[in-house]
């Protein structure tokens, strides 16, 4: 017996959030304001994502949380425990088994299906924020589709670095209309934003929810002579040998030793279970730390 209402939030709050989600799905990429609640965690730890997850979870769901692709970091573990306690839903680390996946800064490597929902934690939902500080003005720019300023940022990147140096939170245009911040996912993940699953974005502190419905066109902004390029470390995973996944770089000693490994832990361990071994990897064993 739990003393919490199912999934922590009260039913009226969840209805309010669901209305915002439905509006967001109806207008892909549009930031819907919602009355964000105080959650039992600090802003910046995923209060927006948690509220969206709470509103979409049902008792039959299986829940997965990843933080930078990993299932076992503090943020992921605490949010997973939070819903284990307040909603008693099943949780999993396997991407394929989850029906709701809450993520911070990554999209899982494997393709998601139509029966899955991906919930993003968003720190700053407004892609124009660092160029135009006024919220009144940015809203007007969205409503009048005045997005020239977004390209000024990309122009500045090229003039300073010789290439578009924005590596994460790379701005996209959704269904030919709204320019959207895909949350701080690496631009490697941008092409995956066109997917079969429903994608919901929650920004708790900024009180905004937005969404990308399944199979929606998502185009990364670029210049004709500097086309968009998804980038990753030019390496293979040292544990599982994958060459197609996004990699984390890990410093392993004081002598300049380092290794690269998949940021998506589930993807990596699944491959290792299947017998793939990378340059510094050892064959997978169930009880290895």
């Amino acid at each position: 017996m739990s003393d919490y209402n199912f999934a922590y939030l009260d039913e009226q709050t969840k209805r309010m959030i669901r209305r915002a989600i439905l509006k967001g799905l109806a207008i892909p990429g549009y930031q819907v304001p919602f009355a964000s609640r105080e959650m039992p965690m600090p802003y910046g730890w995923g209060t927006g994502g948690v509220q969206v997850s709470a509103a979409v979870l049902t008792p039959d769901d299986t829940f997965k949380v990843i933080d930078q692709g990993a299932d076992d970091t503090t943020n992921a573990v605490s949010i997973r425990r939070f819903f284990e306690k307040t909603a008693q839903v099943k949780t999993t680390e396997t991407t394929r088994d989850a029906s709701v996946i809450q993520t911070r800064h990554r999209i899982p490597e494997g393709d998601l299906g139509e029966d899955q929902i991906l919930v993003y934690q968003v720190p700053i939902p407004e892609p124009l924020r660092f160029l135009e500080p006024s919220e009144v003005e940015t809203r007007k720019m969205h409503s009048l589709e005045e997005y020239g300023l977004m390209h000024v940022k990309l122009y500045e990147d090229i003039s300073q670095h010789g290439a578009i140096a924005t590596a994460y939170a790379y701005p996209v245009k959704v269904e030919g209309r709204y320019v959207m911040d895909p949350s701080p996912i690496p631009k490697f993940d941008n092409p995956k934003l066109e997917m079969a699953a429903i994608q919901l974005f929650g920004a708790g502190r900024e009180q905004r929810i937005y969404a990308i419905p399944p199979y929606t066109q998502v185009v990364s902004l670029d210049f004709d002579d500097f086309p968009f390029e998804p980038t990753k470390a030019d390496h293979a995973c040292d544990l599982c040998g994958a060459t197609d996944s996004y990699l984390d770089e890990l410093i392993v000693d004081d002598a300049g030793g380092r290794m690269f490994m998949c940021s998506d832990t589930d993807y990596c361990s699944t491959r290792r279970k299947a017998g793939h071994v990378g340059a510094q990897g050892v064959p997978y064993s169930e009880d290895a730390a």
Partner: peptide, 20 residues
């Protein structure tokens, strides 16, 4: 924003998408 970006902003606002 750099001088070039300042001058280019109006061009980009009316749809110029070629950096060069």
């Amino acid at each position: 924003v750099s001088a070039g970006g300042n001058v280019g902003e109006r061009l980009m606002a009316i749809g110029a998408r070629h950096y060069g």
